[in-house]
Computed example of a mutant assay.
Amino acid sequence: MTSPSPLTEPLKTVGWIHVVDGRLLVVRSRDNDLFFMPGGKLDPGESDEQALVREIEEELGVLLDPATVRPGLVAEAPGHGLDGRLVRMRCLYADLVPGSPEPAPRAEVHELAWVTANDAHRVPPAGRIVLEHLVDAGVLAA
């Protein structure tokens, strides 16, 4: 029996669930038309929690408290612009380190936005799963 090709396995990523006043923080890179969860791919040997803390500092210039990282949900859906390849995004909650600045675009992030369930058209399929989950949990404005 052969193992699946790395290109047929879901792309594993992490995403930060950061909701303020009933709105979810999302980001857009220069080359994208949609907004994504802040986060990204794991480096070899890196845990989901380590990847989240690293990616958020790189992308938004804020520090997450590693002791506060906790599970949210796993969203699996076809990746935007990935020719049908699935993305498996482990979404995690985490608190900012006290005194951390407000999130701001850095690295490949060009723009931040705060979305509600009414903005599902602005996010890729995995993002829609997150929006639905947060609305069902009563955390996100409908």
Score class of each variant (00 low, 15 high):
residue 3 S to M: 13
residue 80 H to R: 13
residue 128 R to A: 06
residue 110 H to M: 14
residue 8 T to S: 15
residue 39 G to Q: 00
residue 87 V to R: 05
residue 88 R to I: 06
residue 71 P to C: 04
residue 131 L to K: 02
residue 37 M to Q: 09
residue 20 V to E: 05
residue 97 V to K: 10
residue 24 L to K: 08
residue 82 L to R: 15
residue 62 V to A: 01
residue 94 A to V: 08
residue 63 L to T: 04
residue 2 T to R: 08
residue 65 D to I: 02
residue 86 L to Y: 11
residue 25 L to Q: 05
residue 10 P to F: 11
residue 116 T to M: 03
residue 15 G to Q: 06
residue 140 L to A: 00
residue 78 P to K: 10
residue 37 M to C: 07
residue 118 N to D: 04
residue 136 D to T: 06
residue 100 S to K: 13
residue 4 P to I: 12
residue 106 R to K: 11
residue 34 L to R: 12
residue 58 E to D: 07
residue 26 V to E: 00
residue 50 Q to E: 13
residue 2 T to L: 10
residue 29 S to D: 13
residue 52 L to H: 11
residue 5 S to H: 15
residue 73 L to F: 02
residue 19 V to I: 06
residue 111 E to W: 08
residue 76 E to S: 15
residue 35 F to G: 05
residue 44 P to I: 00
residue 137 A to L: 05
residue 52 L to E: 11
residue 111 E to Q: 14
residue 83 D to E: 15
residue 86 L to A: 05
residue 71 P to G: 12
residue 11 L to R: 14
residue 4 P to W: 12
residue 51 A to K: 08
residue 94 A to C: 10
residue 31 D to L: 15
residue 94 A to T: 12
residue 114 W to E: 03
residue 70 R to N: 09
residue 10 P to N: 10
residue 56 I to Y: 02
residue 104 A to C: 09
residue 34 L to D: 06
residue 46 E to N: 01
residue 24 L to Q: 09
residue 8 T to P: 10
residue 124 P to K: 12
residue 80 H to F: 15
residue 70 R to G: 13
residue 83 D to K: 15
residue 141 A to W: 01
residue 134 L to Y: 05
residue 42 L to A: 03
residue 52 L to D: 11
residue 128 R to V: 04
residue 6 P to R: 04
residue 14 V to E: 03
residue 5 S to T: 12
residue 102 E to R: 14
residue 31 D to V: 14
residue 61 G to T: 08
residue 102 E to A: 15
residue 33 D to L: 14
residue 61 G to V: 06
residue 131 L to Q: 02
residue 63 L to V: 01
residue 57 E to V: 00
residue 38 P to D: 07
residue 72 G to Y: 07
residue 135 V to G: 04
residue 52 L to T: 15
residue 42 L to F: 08
residue 119 D to K: 01
residue 37 M to V: 04
residue 66 P to M: 09
residue 106 R to M: 06
residue 15 G to M: 04
residue 24 L to I: 02
residue 120 A to D: 01
residue 71 P to K: 09
residue 54 R to T: 01
residue 123 V to Y: 00
residue 83 D to A: 15
residue 18 H to E: 03
residue 122 R to P: 07
residue 62 V to T: 00
residue 48 D to P: 07
residue 105 P to N: 10
residue 45 G to N: 09
residue 51 A to Y: 09
residue 142 A to N: 01
residue 131 L to P: 05
residue 130 V to A: 07
residue 22 G to D: 01
residue 13 T to S: 13
residue 54 R to K: 01
residue 2 T to Q: 04
residue 97 V to Q: 09
residue 94 A to P: 08
residue 5 S to R: 14
residue 74 V to W: 06
residue 29 S to P: 10
residue 142 A to R: 02
residue 140 L to M: 00
residue 73 L to A: 02
residue 8 T to K: 13
residue 67 A to N: 11
residue 41 K to T: 13
residue 77 A to D: 14
residue 17 I to T: 01
residue 4 P to D: 13
